[in-house]
Amino acid sequence: MHIAEGFLPPFWAIFWWLTSLPFIIYGVWKTGKIFKKHPEYKLTLAVSGAFIFVLSSLKLPSVTGSSSHPTGTGLAAVLFGPGVTALLSFIVLIFQALLLAHGGITTLGADVFSMGIVGPFTAYLLFRALRALKASLNISVFIAAVISDWITYVVTSLQLALAYPAANGILGSFTIFLGVFAIAQIPLAVAEGILIVIFFDYLKKSRPKLAAKLLGKLK
């Protein structure tokens, strides 16, 4: 859920930029460290970034009649960890803002915070917790993807509510923004969860070696 260019007042635009910056800097440091040790990972990571971008251009059907796209950042967080995902999301969100008008430059901080930091961190922690509780891979992936998507929408609603409080306060506008997004986003998050489960299932059948390599990392 991108916040469009010009939508946030200056204070909130700067506030979210400053909030996201430490995570992006951590991602830059972390990838720098990885590349120093394994320069060949540059290509793997670049390919993964491009894959997230491609994933975000897929139109998923929704029960409300509308369609939307998966974020793909949950998948990246599960595969590469939340630090690297923050940087990859930042790069992909710049492309989406410039090439597709999804998001903007002044609202990039807010978009990175909801979609590149909170969403992936939630997905990563949930996935790890569920695997530790011996939940099956399919259930862990599905729950992590769906909940991280919902958390992303909750954060976006909060960002908009803080910027535009209603007569009865921030809670009033938060309820309205969340209510409007819920109509489309609750089924869409479930759709993305199903898609990612099918993705892992097919990968296990069609590319057992690659799946085993990834699943080994995901234990």
Binding site: T44, L58, L195, I196
Partner: peptide, 18 residues
């Protein structure tokens, strides 16, 4: 069918990209 097809396509693109 849409979900299955999209899931298979995404996995195929991922496999190919790796």
């Amino acid at each position: 069918a849409k979900f299955r097809t999209y899931g298979v396509i995404v996995a195929s693109v991922f496999g190919r990209s790796m």
